[in-house]
């Protein structure tokens, strides 16, 4: 292992490096992301591919570095997103984002998530995981016969990963 890999793979959880956010930021940032997800695609359809609530969930989970906090944060954002959506029942996004928050927080305990490349990879991975798991839940629980477009998901994952890196830098400004 070289110095770079030692820097990426930490041996012990680094709970001491967890960031703290202002309460207003914790409340307003997810709300803004949900509003963006809900209303902006009505006027700008090309923004529909952005999954800002997911990116915000990944960001707060990575920065908190606590799985419980991450999963609760993801569950809250997902349920809010479900409550504003009329197409699927409450719990679909909640379950998926709960898992995303949990795994993101778990990953943050093993990797140096401040690295932009890691953030890019995690952004792509969790978007793909989010879409795939949502498709699984839709088929398993709701019985919806929908297709999973791998290529489109891959492309949208890349785009979201591209957006995730500057978004995370922007959100880092709200840290205390």
């Amino acid at each position: 292992m070289n110095e770079y890999s030692d820097h990426l793979l930490t041996e012990v959880p680094r709970k001491g490096r967890a960031f703290r956010f202002r309460p207003a930021a914790i409340f307003l940032v997810p709300l803004a992301a949900i509003l963006f997800q809900v209303y902006l695609p009505r006027f700008f359809q090309y923004l529909g591919y952005l999954e800002l609530p997911l990116l915000v969930t990944v960001y707060f989970a990575l920065k908190h570095r606590q799985p419980i906090s991450g999963l609760l944060f993801g569950a809250a954002i997902g349920l809010c997103q479900d409550s504003l959506s009329y197409q699927h029942p409450l719990g679909m996004f909640g379950i998926v984002k709960t898992l995303v928050g949990y795994f993101a927080a778990s990953v943050s305990q093993r990797f140096d998530v401040d690295n932009p490349f890691i953030q890019f990879v995690l952004g792509f991975f969790f978007f793909f995981f989010h879409q795939f798991f949502y498709w699984v839940l839709s088929r398993a629980l709701l019985g919806q016969d929908i297709d999973f477009n791998m290529q489109q998901t891959f492309i949208f994952g890349l785009l979201n990963a591209v957006v995730a890196v500057p978004l995370f830098l922007l959100l880092d400004k709200m840290k205390e």
Binding site: L79, G91, G94, I95, T98, L141
Partner: peptide, 9 residues
């Protein structure tokens, strides 16, 4: 949490 949401669902 997952179980609770599954029940809700």
């Amino acid at each position: 949490v997952i179980g609770a949401q599954l029940l809700l669902l």
